[in-house]
């Protein structure tokens, strides 16, 4: 039964049909599916399935990413409040846009997907200075800083990811806090993330979850060594 709900929910979000996605989850709950099962057997597998689909579907759209992320985040938040035992979280992530960049769609998609996958995420907003990125990451205990840029000059400028990396190194944090970037300029040049000193880049909001999970693994290995 639950596999059918997974299939129906997945098809709804893939088709950007928010109302149908919520209807499927409501029906599942009414039929006795537990909130924990909704998250771990429907929402999280649906995102994993979408990562695979969007990796091979070159025609996937930003609308699909946006709706999939927002619906998953909203349902997960509601379900978490009904969990019998609070689940362990995957890791802590700070996310924002660099100084001079006022385009928040990318980070909103990424934050939604991460929260649906039980990451602790602090969205620190738009137009964030490099110092604030690092200060907030330290105070939040983040293992990953995500910086989303819509514009080439904010992606590659001196007050963007480059300076964040420099400050991480100055404070001896480069092994404890990894830097991931994403946004339009990186889609036009997939090597650009290396130029700005990032540890990784995510091609879109949905696959960012996978990339960040891999970075968390690196942090665990490097801090253990």
């Amino acid at each position: 039964m639950i596999n059918q709900y997974l299939e129906d929910y997945y098809n709804a979000v893939y088709d950007t049909n928010r109302n149908e996605a919520f209807r499927v989850i409501d029906e599942a709950l009414a039929k006795g599916v537990q909130p924990e099962e909704v998250v771990f057997k429907i929402i999280v597998p649906a995102i994993d399935k979408m990562i695979n689909a969007l990796t091979t579907d070159l025609d996937a759209t930003i609308s699909q990413h946006f709706i999939a992320s927002q619906v998953a985040e909203e349902i997960t938040e509601k379900m978490l409040a009904r969990f019998k035992i609070k689940p362990g979280m995957e890791g802590r992530v700070i996310i924002g846009t660099p100084l001079g960049d006022f385009h928040g769609l990318g980070k909103k998609i990424v934050a939604g997907c991460l929260r649906a996958n039980l990451f602790m995420v602090e969205d620190i907003g738009l137009n964030i200075s490099p110092e604030v990125f690092v200060d907030k990451a330290e105070s939040f205990g983040a293992q990953v800083i995500g910086i989303s840029s819509m514009m080439i000059h904010t992606a590659t400028g001196e007050n963007g990811p480059k300076m964040v990396k420099k400050i991480l190194i100055q404070r001896g944090l480069e092994n404890k806090i990894k830097l991931v970037v994403g946004g339009a300029p990186y889609r036009f040049d997939s090597d650009l993330y290396k130029e700005v000193g990032a540890d990784a880049y995510a091609d879109n909001g949905i696959t960012a979850t996978k990339v960040i999970r891999e970075l968390l693994g690196e942090v665990k290995n490097e801090t253990r060594a």
Partner: peptide, 12 residues
Amino acid sequence: MGIDRWLTLLLT
């Protein structure tokens, strides 16, 4: 209205 608000209105 910003892109996220526009997509929200447009799609949902």
